[in-house]
Amino acid sequence: MPHDHHHHDDDHHDHDHSVLPSDPALRVKALETVLTQKGLIDPAALDAIIDTYQNRIGPQNGARVVARAWSDPAFRARLLADATEVVAEMGLYGRQGEHIVAVENTPDTHNIVVCTLCSCYPWPLLGIPPGWYKSDAYRARAVREPRAVLAEFGVTLAEGQAVRVWDSTAELRYLVIPMRPEGSEGMDEDALMALVTRDSMIGTGLARAPT
């Protein structure tokens, strides 16, 4: 809990009572209580969801998909044809029934993903989006000036490499398959996974070069 201790009387420094949660924290608690009393939610399910997103789901899931696509041409072909089905087979379900589309970077085209409406994101593959993905600055500029945004992320594209911007929706989420880095020939899937960064799967980064 945050330490913003609300005092109704500034001269009165009484810490005997429990630390008062922030106003939004109290409002969420109130919603939970009202909905629980009406039988509209199961409080235990909330804890399970939080545990899942805090501890079990993250970019390592997407990295596994990318590493397999790099290693297995048949898997790659299926992934590009129907990512929703392929990732579901791997147990990576979209909880909102959304479709997942894999877009592959090539020497000709670099892909970058944004959500201009809110913050739609392939949760089962990448977890909860980072703060910058949710910022107005990114959401507006990724569409308007993707090359400038990429430069700020330290990504310089080859001359002649086009940028394609994908705008996510509630129904459609994108996973970028970054280009397999040079020098990674012969590496197995587990080793390749370590080269796949979160940002490389959003398109604001490239895969790491092997060291």
Partner: peptide, 29 residues
Amino acid sequence: MIPAEFAEPAFTDPWHAQAFALTVHLSER
């Protein structure tokens, strides 16, 4: 905009997680 390759916590405040979970749960129901 800060490029961040390092793992960030999914939620920076417990109530963010609660609000998120409540929304996902209600949608699933």
